[in-house]
Design a protein around this nucleic acid. Structure first.
Lengths: 230, 230
DNA sequence: GTGCGGTCATTTGTACACAACATCATGCAG
DNA sequence: CTGCATGATGTTGTGTACAAATGACCGCAC
């Protein structure tokens, strides 16, 4: 059973890892779900060994938890842990554009404008999954503004951790549709502000805008989860 | 129900992982060295499988690089990458004591004072490895000042990356002995400052002191490596 | 001497069988 | 009926044989 293009191990590893992480963060694998190595091996047409390599990394990064004799389950995160993650994410957000800033070229700036257009299109037809996708694409675009590799790596970890939890808590809300529409408006505003800052070449300003929006995003989420406001 | 159950495979994994990371960072495994899975399996009295689990994590964290048919080699880092790591480390240093600060109790404060005593003892008999050990112990003590788990994890990654490179570059210098003695004095000064700040309960000040000392430490290293001073 | 091609040794990557472990169902004693 | 011991069942962890891949070595043509 020789598959085409499967000879090298790293591309396949990256493919499976990225896909599984995406599934976890899009809640296709919701928190608490049990993953069977055998099933995954079958799906990706391989044996358990390469699968276990991927699961090990996802476990090291806190997305999964394997227990001998029990299974591999998708982790859940309480609101307190989430707060810690958000606090750090806020700080790192400001560092993008401050550490090793990379001014975007014309093509990159066009990508930012294209994403703004996707926002406008989304407002016409609100959809949580599409919102999450645009959010992720926007995040990766922002990461191109810094050349600091450790900063990019850590920001990515924190982003994916918070995103999946955001989706989970959002799905619980009763006024879900209204909330989604409001969040899309907030997000569109953020993208608009940042695109403007980018066009003017102020990368440090981008960091400040991003920081405040991430912080406000968490504040709204926290307020929804703790509705004991006076 | 949560039992007092302790995972079986985990302690051994942690033991091997910690030991190997220590060896890498103490340059017992110098950059470029080739590690053979078979040898490691024999040393730790197990098979290649658990070893590969450890190597996978060390590779994900950037300490190793495995290549099919070649071997697993300890990575090297150029001065530019090191600069990026240091820049981020400086920023994170300041966040300790700012995010989820944990005031140290009497026992913990005693540990800080004990470490200061070890510094004084070290000044009488300068030794690079002992210096590195005290440095690491001090780092871990500082990490107890914050409860922010992601911050602790990332700081640890960056610390170990920079430490091993510091040792490597330091070992190259001709005036190695003088430089070591000077660095020990600088370090003793830093510990003294931080202990004073801790005794006065100013955790945010601790972050500032640490930040400036980490930055200055890199500046000295960078100056030594690029001796084109005017 | 130099370049080239093939052969071989060495090492990591993969597949699979089995062991270790946890959970749940079952049956029996009280 | 309840409580507990015990085995059945399923899952991850480990050991091991083999496949794949790289680099070194050697021989040979020119």
């Amino acid at each position: 059973m020789k598959g085409a293009g499967k000879r090298d191990a790293r591309p396949r590893f990256d493919r499976i890892y990225t896909l599984m992480r995406s599934r976890i963060c899009m809640l296709d694998y919701p928190p608490g779900m049990r993953l069977r190595e055998e099933d995954l091996a079958e799906e990706f047409e391989t044996s358990r060994t390469p699968i276990r390599r991927v699961l090990a990394r996802l476990e090291d990064e806190g997305f999964l938890r394997s227990m001998h004799g029990v299974g591999t389950i998708v982790t859940d995160i309480d609101i307190d842990s989430l707060q810690q993650v958000y606090q750090l994410r806020v700080e790192l957000a400001e560092l993008v554009g401050k550490l090793s800033p990379v001014p975007p070229d014309a093509a990159r700036r066009a990508e930012f404008r294209a994403l703004l257009a996707r926002c406008d299109h989304l407002r016409g037809a609100p959809d949580a999954r599409e919102f999450a996708r645009i959010n992720t694409d926007f995040f990766h675009l922002l990461m191109t503004l810094t050349a600091n590799e450790p900063l990019r790596e850590f920001s990515e970890r924190l982003y994916y951790q918070t995103t999946r939890i955001w989706l989970k808590h959002a799905a619980r809300l009763t006024r879900y549709e209204d909330m989604l529409e409001a969040e899309i408006r907030f997000f569109r505003h953020e993208v608009s502000d940042i695109v403007a800052a980018i066009e003017s070449g102020e990368l440090e300003v981008v960091g400040h805008i991003r920081r405040s929006h991430v912080a406000m995003s968490f504040a709204r989420l926290y307020a929804e989860a703790h509705p004991q406001s006076p």
